[in-house]
């Protein structure tokens, strides 16, 4: 019983910590890995809350597909959050 409680508290604290990390982190790649960690913890919590269907969906979509879409976007744009503050030489005409 006490181990069950400890497990639940560990998972909930891990989820809050991953959420704060993914918002605070300046390196967007690490932030995206943080959102993947949120989804992973969330799927275990869904399993503990007796929702196996939702746990399967969250594990497949949140961990794999959302992370890969974010990573493709970061690869096509900028990696660091600070890079958006310095103005680049603008190429106004569309390629």
């Amino acid at each position: 019983m006490i181990y069950y409680l400890i497990l639940i508290f560990f998972l909930l604290l891990l989820m809050i910590g991953a959420a704060i990390y993914s918002i605070v982190q300046k390196d967007l790649l690490y932030a995206v890995i943080g959102t993947g960690l949120i989804s992973l913890v969330l799927s275990v919590l869904f399993l503990l809350l007796q929702a196996p269907d939702v746990a399967l969906t969250e594990a497949a979509i949140g961990v794999a597909l959302t992370t890969i879409i974010f990573i493709i976007t970061i690869r096509n744009t900028v990696r660091f959050e600070d890079e958006v503050y310095q103005k680049k030489p603008s190429k106004t005409e569309a390629k």
């Binding site: 967007l28 949120i38 959050e81």
Partner: peptide
Amino acid sequence: KKSLIKVVIGLSVFDS
């Protein structure tokens, strides 16, 4: 947040 990718990350966390 100012970065657009950070805004989308925030919305994703909100969803969770």
